[in-house]
Design a protein around this nucleic acid. Structure first.
Lengths: 371, 371
DNA sequence: CTGAAAGCGCTAACAG
DNA sequence: CTGTTAGCGCTTTCAG
């Protein structure tokens, strides 16, 4: 391994000068710097990160804690952060919790401590103890998709749910199911709670009654959506489903159709995400920027790392309702006795005029628009 | 920061003993070890990775180079590796190339060198120069989903394609399109070439003629599948499509249906992957173990790291044909003049007997079976 | 602008 | 079984 000393000798300067020259520090003459750079390049010299970290106390590495890398949302967030950190010269250490809360222990105990300069936590509900442990690290912490005492980047989950439900209410639905209730007491994630709360809030706003029977379990997977669909089918009155993620929404769609329910003629479905495959299902959804949250989170982390004073407030990125074909007015019978459905928007009228769609999306055109 | 010296003082031993005790090395009395461990725990002591690396030359970190973390396959591979490495005490440094070959430069030049003990490369075609550079690292290298001079883990891409095409040929198709030809000269990935070759081989085996018009561009995204569908529609003769990934296959399905083609009545579609959403499309596909490849690759890397002699051969994991509803016999007219279609297997006959399916999957039951 | 020297915290001989 | 003592390769005062 070629070390800083080799470079120093070749260039005829001291190691201190090499260090300064290569890191772009001042107090090095341009000529010397050039010479050092040339020698370093010709020797394929790269400073040892371990040695540099040891001496400087800085690792130029950030840790990213994620519940499931293989899921679209998390993968996209990581993908969004990557170039920002790469550009700034930071490496990315990844810890996948695989959905198990106890995996945190390992992360904290043996890894987190001195390996990274900052920590990014994705969509994980932090217990007070965990927050305290992170605080104790004395390092920048940024939370993505969750609320905490740390600076964060997220969408308005409550608002996203309200948007979805209002859309359904506006179409005339009165019995709307929610898919995405966490099973256990202590959830690993933060969003389910907020989306459920938003759903309830919107129901109340519309003067609709809430029912336990309509709040269905869902763990954000396709399968849990399929399972939820069975419950929806069993509930004779439900004419619409708001699923807290597109993957669950797709599962719901599948389940409904397997049970012979026509979408949206008999049941409407709305999701959250605008997953790349949502368009294939012609799924109405509340779009959120996944990679965008990663990018912004990385930027916030860099600000923190650069010593800038970032208030511990959240950056809230916008969502938008993308109306596609899985949402429509409820079947005539179902709305009986309900308050007159809000009149459809011109846009919706136009859209629906277009088409007796086949079951699977028929339109490839513009896949949605701002609400 | 509490250091090894603090622990040594508290425990009344030397730093060397602390080091030995904590790392489980021999030559420490059980009593001393216990005492040291207690003190270390009470002090929340964790050895500085930088210092340990500098002194030992070992980082306990592996580098993973991936083309796109946010895509299902790559995310799943990483997810599969994660627990294996975590268990063995290795951290995972992630580099996402974002599909850009030139991003390699950055990885090599400044990061890879002294930061990791081993490198895992996912589905990236290595140029001779890149192979040489990796070889020069003098560290274990494992390649996932590609062939190289290094030990690797993959599926038989050629064989997977043959399986898919044979299935279609067996159903009686004679004009079968392929989706997944790389656009540029030098691809970033290795699989497209092999799957195309397998497609060609199977065509030849069946005595079917090959046509440039049937070999369609595809970059493994949904959109490229949609685009390819348009070409298939334009080609009046094609009755089947083999897409080299499920995501493209889903795009093809969408595109075909948008153009009013019925699947599989008019056109059959087969993919590769068995993506979690394949079942929602009732997509016939050649399943491959994604997380499994990651797991095995991690195990191979650990073997290498432990100094075991791993031959530079590939571990080839099995694939299996999962027959669902997007593949069926060609429409009666199309096969005119063709050799008698191979008789259907009992399994296929049974399956088809079941159902006048709706366009989107109607069955939720067992989603496929071994061929 | 440059060099000398003192660590950073740990591991790895080498003694004892 | 345990302690002493060199480094590992870099950064960072402190002199000059």
């Amino acid at each position: 391994m070629t070390s800083i000393r080799d470079v120093a000798q070749q260039a005829g300067v001291s190691v201190a000068t090499v260090s300064r020259a290569l890191r772009g520090l001042p107090r090095v003459s341009e000529e010397t710097r050039r010479r050092v750079q040339e020698v370093a390049a010709s020797l394929d010299y790269v400073a040892s990160p371990s040695a540099a970290s040891l001496a400087s106390g800085v690792t130029r590495t950030v840790g990213v804690v994620v519940p499931h890398v293989s899921r679209w949302f998390f993968g996209s967030v990581v993908q969004g952060m990557q170039p920002v950190f790469a550009e700034a010269g930071y490496d990315l250490l990844l810890w996948d919790l695989e959905g198990r809360r106890d995996a945190w222990g390992r992360v904290f105990g043996h890894l987190l401590s001195k390996r990274v300069d900052a920590v990014l936590v994705l969509s994980i509900a932090l217990s007070p103890q965990e927050e305290a442990a992170l605080r104790r690290l004395g390092k920048p912490v940024v939370v993505v998709g969750g609320q905490s005492e740390f600076p964060g980047v997220r969408i308005d989950d409550h608002g996203a749910a309200v948007t979805a439900v209002r859309h359904l209410v506006g179409l005339g639905h009165r019995r709307i199911a929610f898919v995405g209730v966490e099973r256990g007491e202590e959830g690993l994630h933060t969003t389910p709670r907020d989306r459920l709360a938003g759903y309830r809030w919107a129901l109340e706003e519309a003067g609709l009654e809430r029912s336990e029977a309509l709040e269905l379990t869902g763990d954000y997977t396709v399968d849990s959506g399929i399972a939820a669909a069975a419950r929806v089918v069993a509930d004779q009155g439900a004419t619409a489903v708001f699923a807290a993620s597109d993957e669950m929404a797709m599962g719901v769609l599948h389940g409904l159709r397997c049970s012979g329910r026509a979408v949206p003629e008999q049941v409407s479905v709305v999701g959250v995400d605008d997953h790349p495959m949502a368009v294939l299902f012609d799924l109405t959804t509340v779009a959120q920027p996944a990679a965008g949250q990663g990018r912004v989170a990385a930027e916030v982390a860099l600000d923190l790392l650069h010593g800038e004073d970032v208030p511990p407030a959240d950056v809230v990125l916008p969502t938008r309702l993308v109306v596609r074909g899985t949402s429509g007015p409820p079947p005539p019978g179902a709305a009986a006795g309900s308050p007159a459905p809000a009149s459809r928007t011109a846009a919706e009228r136009a859209r629906r005029a277009g088409a007796a769609r086949p079951v699977l999306a028929a339109r490839t055109g513009p896949s949605g628009r701002r609400d």
